[in-house]
Simulated assay, not measured.
Amino acid sequence: MSLKTSKLTVIGAGPGDVDLITLKAIKVLKTADVVLYDALVNEEILSFINPEAEQVFVGKRRGCYAYQQEQINELIVERAKAFGHVVRLKGGDPFIFGRGAEEMEYATGFGLEVAVVPGISSSIAVAAYQNIPLTKRGSAESFWVITGTTKEHKISSDIELAAKSNATVVVLMGMSKLPQIVKLFQAQGKNDLPVAIIQNGTRTNEKIGIGTVDTIVNIVAEKELKNPAIIVLGEVVKHRQTILEIQQQYANELNG
């Protein structure tokens, strides 16, 4: 048995770009005895981990689970009791659909100390990297961040509520439900509402499709967009094109 304090720290690794992990997260990774990391974590980040720490991949890839959630919970407690400080490294922010809260509750029930290091959520950063602001004066006064798929593998009822608002709507884990999402917005007469789909956001292999509620399903098929991706619906999507047009106009003026 370890004489070290049994502790769990849940860390958000950010949306993909390795430079978007926080300094706090890097400092904590250097103190870890064991790191359990997910599939959406950029593997370059693993170089920041204490070289003597055990690294365990517990993520999901192409529908294949390395570990079920219950097994991950048990692994956290087992490793913390045996070795001390366990870091649970998750993509984005661990409290934004990351199940970090569940793991902390479980660990606390076995006497572990718990802490969290927030991460930059893909819901904000991925859009921002494409010059899409989630709020913009005159376009959107608020934004919703919604999971596309609930625990029961159904579409979230919150999307129907969000479609009735003037807010920017960001859907995570929603690509399999895109046709249903489109129908909810069409039912509100928002056929021409701009939509962006961004795959592998902030990474070097990022792909993007821009369209409207009526056209986005076809655009996704043409560009072969798939998970991991976020869906952004709202007038703010136009800002990306506005920036491109201003840049082009400026370049034309420079070139006479």
Rank of each mutant, 00 (worst) to 15 (best):
N131H: 03
S139Y: 11
S139F: 11
F143A: 07
V145A: 09
V145K: 09
I146L: 11
K154M: 14
I155G: 14
I155N: 13
S157Q: 13
D158H: 08
I159F: 10
A162S: 07
K164Q: 08
S165E: 02
S165L: 01
A167S: 08
T168A: 06
L172I: 06
G174F: 06
K177P: 14
L178P: 12
P179V: 12
I181S: 10
F185E: 08
F185L: 06
N191W: 08
D192N: 07
P194M: 05
V195D: 00
V195G: 00
I198V: 01
Q199N: 01
N200Y: 05
T204C: 05
N205E: 10
E206G: 00
K207L: 12
G209W: 01
G211N: 07
G211H: 06
T212M: 09
T212D: 08
V213F: 04
D214C: 11
V217M: 12
V217Y: 13
V220L: 12
E222I: 13
E222W: 14
K223S: 11
E224R: 14
K226S: 13
N227S: 06
P228A: 05
I231E: 09
V232S: 01
V236P: 03
V237L: 02
H239A: 06
H239D: 03
R240C: 04
R240K: 08
Q241D: 14
Q241N: 13
T242L: 11
T242S: 13
I246N: 14
Q249I: 14
Y250P: 14
A251I: 14
